[in-house]
């Protein structure tokens, strides 16, 4: 019970963090039809900027400033990069974001080096919030959840209750019609791209010190975010939300479960000798398969339902 509750809380905080990343990616994809390969690089920039800004101002100011700076970089990326290659089609845009991911990684290498940086959880949040049975639950994880939920509600209200939100929603499916009604759609694109990057940056600020801030973090989290977006359905925010929580739970539970099929068989009194051909295969624990499980799930989803949980596109 203790294991279940603690892992559930951890998976929830991780899932919400994944949603912060995937929501931006899926919004950008719906609107522009471009899968932004550099999205996780903005997550990484968020973490590094928070580390750097925080060194001068402390964590709290960095929490606001770092996503803002990442958002501004996102706006420039759209305005002077993506928009310029837009007329050459989606392949050119895809290649642009692909190249950008490498450029950002190299810049990070140059500025902060290849080793992890010492981006730490702020002291004021470095305490045990409560004790669940015997497990001490860190306050920072709860803080991560709080920020994620506030962001989620803000995003929802912004999209459904404001005029700008309506314009964004309409532009997701009918950009040329929205422009014909007199709305500056290119500018809406820029703000959505910037907003998506800022959200990724915020996720970086929160995740960078919870996990690790190093140049490989973009690649590590980037592939998982793609899994989330494909699993949830390209372009669906609700799908991305559900998929984030599911993938978050699968990853968190699977790394914590040290059980194998062999243990399961033992439960029914079946035992397989160590000399058996099947022994090595059956003794692989769930935690050992953890890294591959999300991808397996994605492949299964693509076979069974190619448009994902809530997506409305066939590809």
């Amino acid at each position: 019970m203790e294991f279940f509750l603690v892992t559930l809380l951890n998976s929830l905080s991780y899932g919400l963090l994944l949603f912060m990343l995937s929501s931006g990616l899926t919004l950008i994809f719906s609107m522009m039809g471009v899968l932004n390969f550099a999205h996780a690089s903005f997550y990484m920039l968020g973490a590094y900027f928070a580390y750097q800004i925080g060194a001068y101002t402390g964590f709290w100011i960095a929490l606001f400033l770092a996503p803002l700076v990442v958002g501004v970089i996102g706006a420039f990326t759209e305005r002077f990069g993506l928009r310029a290659v837009h007329r050459f089609g989606h392949v050119a845009e895809l290649l642009f974001t692909f190249g950008l991911a490498y450029v950002i990684e190299e810049v990070v290498h140059l500025v902060w080096g290849r080793a992890p940086v010492n981006y730490r959880i702020p002291e004021r949040l470095d305490f045990t919030l409560f004790t669940l049975f015997t497990t001490q639950y860190p306050a920072y994880r709860a803080f991560m959840m709080l920020v994620s939920v506030v962001m989620l509600i803000t995003l929802y209200l912004l999209l459904t209750r404001t005029r700008v939100g309506l314009i964004v929603q309409a532009s997701l499916t009918h950009p040329s019609m929205v422009e014909a009604l007199g709305h500056n759609v290119p500018r809406v694109f820029m703000f959505v791209f910037a907003g998506g990057c800022a959200l990724a940056g915020l996720a970086g600020v929160l995740g960078g010190n919870m996990f690790i801030t190093e140049p490989g973090m973009a690649f590590a989290v980037g592939s998982i975010v793609f899994v989330v977006v494909v699993f949830g359905g390209m372009g669906s925010l609700v799908g991305a939300f559900i998929a984030s929580l599911i993938i978050g739970a699968i990853q968190t539970f699977s790394v914590a479960l040290n059980l194998s099929l062999l243990d399961f068989l033992n439960l029914f009194g079946l035992s397989i000798s160590e000399d058996s051909f099947w022994h090595s295969g059956l003794s692989i624990t769930i935690s050992q398969t953890a890294p591959v499980l999300p991808y397996l799930l994605m492949v299964l989803m693509l076979i069974v339902r190619p448009r994902g949980l809530m997506g409305n596109r066939e590809t």
Binding site: Q169, L181, V185
Partner: peptide, 22 residues
């Protein structure tokens, strides 16, 4: 396009293009 529209040119397209979720 959006500047043309703002100058007072309205366009009703053939395929209607309503925003279905709104």
């Amino acid at each position: 396009t959006y500047q043309i529209s703002r100058r007072g040119l309205g366009y009703v397209p053939e395929n209607r293009e309503i925003f279905p979720d709104l």
